[in-house]
């Protein structure tokens, strides 16, 4: 007799547990407010990334086309995978001294692992992360970027 009651208890409990699960899923079915999908290309205009989001490394320039990079090459040393290549040049300052400055700051986005070591260790805070995340390109070569803009100069007061 106990076997039979056990059998029916099994059936009953089993069905009950199934119904519990179905209540959750059916509940969501009738609750469209729970939908979390974001319509990406449509919401592009008002899509705000977090300010610390590591999209790509950039070198911020001010309105006079000046940056803070002194060409010291520390970021290149600290980068774990050779993403950054600093090509320095020497310039003559107004008081006639020879000085090291940046010629080209090459950044290869395709190799970057976003470890943030370059940004952290740059002594003059010349680098930053941008929030851009749409990196797809048709040509691999365009992933290699020059971070200092053409004709840009060192900001005043940055050593």
């Amino acid at each position: 007799m106990s076997n039979i009651s056990e059998y029916f208890k099994d059936v009953f409990n089993g069905v009950l547990s199934l119904l519990k699960g179905m209540r959750v899923t059916a509940g969501y079915f009738f609750k469209p407010s729970a939908i979390v999908t974001q319509k990406y290309p449509e919401n592009r205009k008002n899509l705000v990334m977090f300010e610390r989001f590591k999209g790509e490394v950039v070198m911020p320039h001010n309105e006079n086309n000046e940056h803070k990079c002194t060409g010291c090459g520390i970021c290149e040393i600290n980068c774990p995978n050779g993403t950054i290549e600093v090509i320095p040049k020497s310039i003559i300052t107004e008081d006639g001294k020879k000085k090291r400055a940046i010629d080209k700051h090459i950044y290869r986005l395709g190799m970057c692992t976003f470890c943030a070591l370059c940004v952290k260790t740059c002594p003059s805070n010349a680098l930053a992360f941008s929030q851009k995340f749409e990196h797809a390109v048709f040509d691999r070569a365009s992933l290699t970027k020059q971070l200092n803009k053409p004709g840009s100069q060192l900001m005043k007061g940055v050593e």
Binding site: T25, A26, Y28, F29, P32, A34, I35, V36, T37, K39
Partner: peptide
């Protein structure tokens, strides 16, 4: 299934 799974 999308609505069940909180999708569109």
């Amino acid at each position: 299934c999308a609505f069940i799974q909180n999708r569109l």
